[in-house]
């Protein structure tokens, strides 16, 4: 059977869960993996909870449904921990990566499954420092590189550069790249 890694992003409209999912998929594709990435489109509005999904595999991906048993869960907004079961369907060896100033132990107390790996990083703080805006999605890619093997630090930076170069000013692009590096250094796991 093919080796399949499924990733689920939880965020709010405007935080970039869709774009980050696409960048992650493109980074994996650049490493030679088969990929599938799609957001869950609801009534699109800024601030509304939304999810996006990424599948990465060594074989063509034929499944066409939302990710329900993620190996990796990424939460872009810690206020979602109280309103959504972000651990839903995740097996005990899955990791939950949260943008928060809380410690992994504090986050674990809010999860429906206390056995999961938990990592935290203040991606919002890093984004405000480096990008000057509360866009926590790209720093999370750095944290993802550190805590999982699904993408490398260089791969994440390269994919962000390819996706955003030309669309953003050079300063904002460099801010994004710096944010990835900082999140890679600052992510904590327990």
């Amino acid at each position: 059977m093919p080796q399949l890694t499924e990733v689920r992003w939880h965020g709010r409209g405007g935080q970039g869960a869709k774009t980050a999912g696409y960048i992650l998929a493109e980074a994996a594709a650049a490493d030679g993996w088969q990929i599938q990435a799609f957001p869950e489109y609801g009534a699109e509005r800024r601030g509304a909870p939304m999810r996006s999904f990424v599948r990465i595999s060594d074989a063509p991906i034929r499944l066409r449904c939302p990710v329900r048993n993620p190996k990796i869960v990424i939460v872009l907004d810690d206020t979602l921990l109280g309103s959504e079961d972000v651990a839903s369907g995740a097996a005990d060896d899955a990791i939950v990566l949260v943008n928060t100033t809380m410690s992994p132990d504090e986050v674990r107390k809010q999860l429906s499954n206390p056995h999961l790996r938990v990592a935290t990083v203040d991606a919002t703080g890093i984004a405000l420092d480096t990008i000057k805006r509360d866009i926590p999605n790209t720093p999370m890619l750095g944290a993802l590189a550190k805590t999982t093997g699904v993408v490398t630090l260089e791969g994440a930076k390269r994919a962000v550069h390819e996706k955003l170069a030309g669309k953003l000013s050079e300063a904002v692009l460099q801010g994004n790249l710096a944010a990835i590096g900082r999140a890679y250094e600052e992510v904590r796991e327990a």
Binding site: Q34, I35, A37, F38, P39
Partner: peptide
Amino acid sequence: YDGFLVSHSVEM
């Protein structure tokens, strides 16, 4: 082709 499932999905 299927809306969103194919139209808005990224794949190779």
